[in-house]
Nucleic acid binder design. Structure first.
Lengths: 225, 225
DNA sequence: GATGGGTAAACTGTAGACAATAACCAATCC
DNA sequence: GGATTGGTTATTGTCTACAGTTTACCCATC
């Protein structure tokens, strides 16, 4: 043990690269969610490997993981293709998200404390500011943070992880929509906070249900691009 | 295109072995769920590869997948360890399963037809027979089939896949318990069928909730082995 | 002109080899 | 005597090479 410890900020916490497959995974996920890689596109291992400056192996492992999480379809002896969302699947995914988020809201309402509520208030304010400033990316980010915070307050790690995965995919499907209903979304967030503050489990569930339901309707009413 | 199609049974559907990683994955999952590989055990790639008669690569890919699905923990530069369930995690997992199954029951109640109900009846009868015969494995299998059938009737593929994963893990955690409450379980199944037949969404949800809740209680009341 | 076969290219699936990292153990120094 | 340092071994992380499949294209044939 070091005699007296180190002043806390002294060590610059040298970033370790971590496993390559992780970074490849994140890079590919980024490329998919930003639509730099289009749905249906054939992902050739050697190409990706070349572009990322690594060998095929880490790419393969990243693709495997993306496959299990539903981002790419892995057809045997043929390779990886970016998953193509169907209308039906988007709907089902949203249903599941509703379910998970509603449960999280319920658990949060049942068990949270003042500190948690304060954190929600802060994130909500942040999001509202972003909307006022027409900062779309900021609003989207704040939205994700808000929902993640509710998950955290729910205190169920399994639920949280599932919701994170489903949430990312929903966001991918619905990105065109997200921009349209930024403002309304934050009004609903305020309602949710109120219900959680009041410890109103039933109310929190209902608000979250309605919240997601609005998203679904916006999606189905949208113009085809 | 073939001129008139083929009689359905004509093609013997020549079985291809399929990717090795799949078979390795299934083999390892089997070993884990049957507890041939104990929680916390260090899985050495080269050992597994040797025992299964393949090279390390397919083993690695299988381990990656098992990792994302929560069966093994993959500590960087150290290897794979069979996941060790904690009390808390078991509880959270069961909560999530309750949620998913209840929703499935609701959807099934809302949308199924006579054929679906008949199928449930049949599976239920099969399970009851197995219980009467003290055929524990048969009862467990029938149980899984029953729940899978409800998922199918719910008609939500995303929900179904999630529930399948969560369900397998729950079954892993709770196997010691499953044997204790085989009989009661099938009584509750009958109630569930009644609710679904009546198209009673609320009732179906409630029954499924209670069903899982009983499992949870049995688990927490159990003797430590 | 359409159809069938055959060939070639590209890509994936698997295996084996090398480099890097972390745990383990013994020897050494305070 | 205890802690630390250096070496050692086992295991993972990554790369390269090869074999097996699938796909696409071209040419010959009807």
């Amino acid at each position: 043990m070091l005699s007296r410890g180190l002043p806390h900020g002294a060590v610059p916490k040298l970033e370790r690269p971590g496993p390559l497959r992780e970074r490849v995974y994140e890079a590919l996920l980024e490329l998919i969610t930003t639509r730099a890689l289009r749905p249906g596109q054939h992902l050739v291992e050697s190409e990706l490997a070349g572009q990322l400056g690594v060998s095929r192996q880490p790419v393969r492992e990243a693709l495997q993981r993306l496959n299990t999480e539903g981002w790419v379809d892995l057809r045997p002896a043929q390779g990886a293709f970016v998953h193509e969302p169907t209308e039906e699947e988007a709907d089902q995914l949203l249903t599941v998200r509703t379910l998970l988020e509603a449960e999280a809201a319920r658990l949060a309402a049942a068990g949270t404390d003042a500190a948690g509520i304060a954190a929600l208030e802060e994130l909500c304010a942040k999001g509202e500011r972003a909307v006022l400033d027409d900062d779309v990316d900021g609003a989207v980010a704040a939205n994700a943070e808000f929902h993640a915070k509710i998950m955290e307050l729910a205190g169920n790690a399994v639920l949280s992880e599932l919701a994170a995965q489903v949430g990312r995919r929903v966001r991918w499907y619905y990105t065109p929509v997200a921009r349209q209903r930024g403002k309304q979304s934050w009004i609903e967030h305020r309602e949710l906070i109120a219900a959680i503050t009041a410890g109103d489990e039933h109310g929190a569930t209902a608000v979250m249900r309605a919240h997601t339901e609005h998203t679904r309707r916006t999606y189905h009413d949208r113009e085809r691009s």
